[in-house]
Design a protein around this nucleic acid. Structure first.
Lengths: 203, 203, 203, 203
DNA sequence: TATGAATGAGTCTTCATTCAT
DNA sequence: AATGAATGAAGACTCATTCAT
């Protein structure tokens, strides 16, 4: 109604304040869920007043979206954020094994955030499209790395996408589910076998 | 203190009412999300008053949990709910292809519900354990079918679990994401190849 | 609106049902308070359905009022409900001592009911006037007994009323409050002294 | 779970708001009863929104308890809140007569509040203990005043407590009941006689 | 007569958002 | 730029009462 102007911070202090809010809000939402996080908690955690929040953000959702923008790369497939990976036939399995271990040893936050974001996917078109885009970006990025390392193969994007899913499922299972009937060491080896298989088949 | 008694329906009419509420509530929650569904919407969709809802259910969550109980089998891997599957080496790929197509052609409800349930997994211990248990049940069920069809292989449960994840990801991707850059026919074939591969390797 | 006819029971069974409801309702209300007692509890305790309640009573308040009518004599100054009291100068103190002990040894229900009724006095004109009337009836009754026993004295009604208050306060204090700093034996003796004093002064 | 934080007011404005709510809530509850007073009425009477109520108070009961804390001294035996009372044998009767008249001429609020509080005594442990404590405090205070004025007598606390009851009953009767058959001037004199009697007997 | 299923207005409470300072 | 007090719409849940059987 009153169309409160959203301020784009210029001064350093303002920028810091905005960042603090994004971090506080995103952390809380990823931890407790979107609906269990209220603006007052966010403001408190950020060390600011509730009022100021609405000078930097349109609404609560806007905070979350900003966090998504800012931190998504750390959350989605952070294991691929390694510069200068050198894939060879010999180290392919090892590289993926390391990635998986790295992902798992990462703090749980990522996993929870991932779920929360997934959950918002169908209730919020913007979240969905953001998520969507990031996923494809990552697929492309990895495909390119592979190509640059002479791992070109037909339908590489489809394959990489499947691989990403395999890793994601595995890590999620290990971090979260803990089905006692399953042996996660064996499962990890099986997944790596699959990854190697799919990336090396010639059709 | 006030301890409103939850009624266990006796008359046929009231059993129908309870069922209508479960169906309406579960449908809405799966469609719009838990927090975007309120009791008044549920009552309206079920064609009853808000009051009656609380004679059959402790709270909104209870409705959802009941729905989970009642419909979970239709939602989690409904493609495996086929009696008398006969796996042979020759039809293995075909059977899975049919399953995937069946899953996809299934109403979207499943997929959305799946997400919502996944989302509630970390905020609600009961949902989590329910989900968790169902998943393992299904893993066991499929493992057994395979064993009965002479597809025994070491670590079959781990393998089946990976297969289920592959199918789930694929179907979800197709139903939901629709990345234009990906060719889903190819992706489906690739996934089936993987499934066959993982289920037939001898270690 | 629809002016559901309130039935005046004729058959013996009906009368019994009505009485059961009155008893159940009045007991519960006296125990838990008017607002903490709901009709469903009353029906359940009376062993009838909720629907039937409204064939015998206009509303919840009507049940309470009926109970008041029926049981008030047992609640208000039940110690005076002794037939053929013989007051003499010598046994005056003893009689009151007995009354007090009787009152106290009476089940607590009376005290709670008394409070609840007192509480409703100012929110419900009918309860108030009922209570009011009963109190005066009792004052008159006791005054008459005293007069018949040659304890006439000027302003006897005022005196009796004060005496009733003294007894009521004392009993209530003993049954309820349990101020540890006060010695209730001494207090009882003091109150009896006062009663004797007020009833025997000659002005 | 959601644990709405109760704010302790800092700014002058908010202290005023909190006080307004306490006053409005306590007045209404004392007038109309706890269950006939809803938060919306309280907010309206206080001239604030319903939301703000829950920033200062946990719930409706909390408002009432706060009022109790704040206004109890004005309600329980306000006639004793006179500093520097000088009791002598000659003015004893007069002092109490004045107190009674003062109590009665006091606004009715006290009487109604007193009843409501009494009523809540058995349904709410906190109210009960508060009420309870105040009563004993007052008993002690008056006992001490009497002792300091050389009106020491055995079992003074028990006597004072009886006196307080006599006054309370009398005032309540006059303010509230208005039994037409009783002459309140005479009754007042009789009560004062009793008070003098009980406070001057030597055992 | 009786049952118990159903109604829906009413209540408490929360929280994103705005406003006065 | 910032504070935190205030708003009020919306939601979960209760319960006296009525209705279909």
């Amino acid at each position: 109604m009153s169309e409160t102007e959203i301020r784009e911070p210029i001064q350093k202090r303002s920028i810091e304040t905005k960042d603090k809010i994004i971090k506080a809000g995103f952390d809380l939402i990823c931890h407790d869920g979107y609906y269990n996080t209220n603006t007052s908690k966010i403001a408190k955690k950020a060390g600011v007043s509730t009022g100021i929040v609405y000078q930097y953000f349109k609404d609560k959702r806007d905070i979350f979206l900003s966090g998504l923008n800012k931190y998504a790369d750390d959350i989605f497939y952070p294991m691929f954020n390694i510069p200068n990976i050198n894939f060879t036939k010999d180290n392919l399995a090892n590289i993926f094994k390391n990635m998986i271990q790295k992902y798992i040893s990462n703090h749980k936050l990522s996993a929870i955030a991932h779920e929360e974001i997934t959950a918002m996917t169908h209730s919020d078109k913007d979240v969905a499209s953001h998520f969507h885009k990031k996923e494809m970006e990552m697929t492309n990025k990895i495909s390119n790395i592979l190509i640059n390392n002479n791992f070109n193969t037909p339908n590489i994007k489809e394959k990489v996408h499947i691989v990403m899913g395999l890793i994601d499922n595995l890590c999620h299972e290990i971090v979260y589910h803990k089905h006692k009937e399953l042996d996660y060491n064996i499962m990890t080896d099986l997944v790596i076998d699959e990854i190697v298989h799919i990336l090396t088949i010639k059709d």
